[in-house]
């Protein structure tokens, strides 16, 4: 018996010798049982390909992430033709960099300017531009964000530590299963000398959702 089991057993209500018997057996919690039941059913019906699942999990866990979106933004900052293309046909421009969606959604890029700050939400569930940002953080999926991004965008930005200059308006974009938005943040001042790759390092995930800004501090350290 290892230490963990000793600890677990000592927490049992009655530390009789019977508890050792329980610990000789496995236990699956309710959620694990539901997942296993689902997988067994799909396996029986021929819809389960464990290899394909592993590839999907690995892809989303390790390969797809906000760094893809950062590359898109950095390219737009350094290449005005690409930027124009991105604003007119984001799906095609993003696909040209090798980032394509699996769900057939249409990508739309909204540009921050000196007049407008854009912020993205999915009020219904958590539609999110996976191919460029990976999977959404918990707060994006939470009810308070989904509700408050629309009702109180100024307050939400304040919680993320952002105060916009007076006079700048906020546009909130509601993602759906069909349309996913990506914010093109403003390029920080005094970063024109940086390479595309260095610029990409300034682009934070939140700056592409609109709950953050590119991190100019990273530029100073370049």
């Amino acid at each position: 018996m290892n230490n963990n089991e000793t600890t677990a057993a000592s927490k049992a209500s009655k530390p009789t010798h019977e508890h050792t018997h329980d610990h000789e057996h496995s236990h699956l919690d309710e959620t694990e049982l539901r997942v296993r039941a689902l997988k067994s059913l799909l396996s029986e019906k021929g819809y389960l390909d464990p290899e394909a699942l592993n590839v999907l999990i690995d892809t989303y866990q390790h390969q797809v992430g906000p760094q893809n979106g950062a590359r898109v933004v950095a390219r737009a900052w350094t290449d005005s033709t690409f930027k124009q293309w991105l604003l007119e046909d984001a799906s095609a421009a993003i696909a040209s960099l090798g980032f394509t969606g699996r769900q057939g959604e249409h990508m739309v890029v909204v540009e921050n300017t000196s007049d407008v700050h854009n912020m993205v939400v999915c009020t219904l569930c958590s539609c999110y531009p996976w191919p460029v940002l990976g999977l959404p953080p918990s707060w994006y999926k939470s009810a308070p964000y989904r509700a408050r991004a629309v009702s109180d965008p100024v307050g939400v930005l304040a919680e993320f530590g952002i105060t916009l200059p007076t006079g700048k308006s906020i546009s909130v974009w509601d993602s759906t299963a069909e349309v996913r938005y990506l914010v093109l943040p403003e390029q920080p001042a005094n970063t024109e000398h940086l390479s595309e790759q260095q610029l990409g390092e300034l682009v934070t995930r939140n700056s592409m959702i609109g709950t953050g800004l590119p991190d100019p501090a990273s530029a100073v350290s370049q």
Binding site: T31, Y47, D49, L53, L56, D152
Partner: peptide, 30 residues
């Protein structure tokens, strides 16, 4: 209005089963 719960640098999935159900949906869609 409730605060927005935030964690920095959280993992994509907290537990393996979450990754499994995520991949199952994608796979069935595909």
């Amino acid at each position: 209005l409730p605060d927005i719960p935030r964690r920095d640098n959280e993992p994509v999935f907290d537990e393996p089963w979450q990754a499994e159900v995520f991949a199952l949906s994608l796979s069935l869609h595909e």
